[in-house]
Amino acid sequence: MSLNSCIQCGTCIASCPSGRITALNTRRIIAEFISSGKKVEERDEIWFCVTCYACQERCPRGIEITDTLIEARRTLVRNKGLPGRLGYAFTFLMNHAALVPAREEHVELRRKLGLPIYHAQFDEKAKEEVRRIVEKHAGSVVRWSSSPAA
């Protein structure tokens, strides 16, 4: 369903955990899109969405609110880079095949528990395969976002 079918009932914002404490207001985002054409991807507050999907599931018009925010983020990322520590997370994905890579202490605990160490982070061939995929789709954004100047 397109954003234009919104009836401004407010169910989405009433369901939104982030909306209670941040500037994120899905009902208003949609209202201003309809009335003045303000684009969703021009709003930094969409990074406050925890993607719980409560709004999308409860919207009586079946508007794909959460998915709309995620899609808008892609444009935000291309224009402004990744916010906060997200730049590092994707550098890890590119270099270690893991958004959350292991450090020595985590490897130690696996050994202690008698568990094998088999994540792609520890497999050169697998790691290279993942690195290529990240490089292809997001290499420049990742380098830009994690550089000290960003």
């Binding site: 941040t22 990074w47 969405c49 925890v50 719980c52 990744l82 916010p83 906060g84 520590r85 997200l86």
Partner: peptide, 9 residues
């Protein structure tokens, strides 16, 4: 979720 921990701790 949603990257909020990393984007806006």
């Amino acid at each position: 979720g949603g990257g909020v921990r990393a984007a806006a701790t």
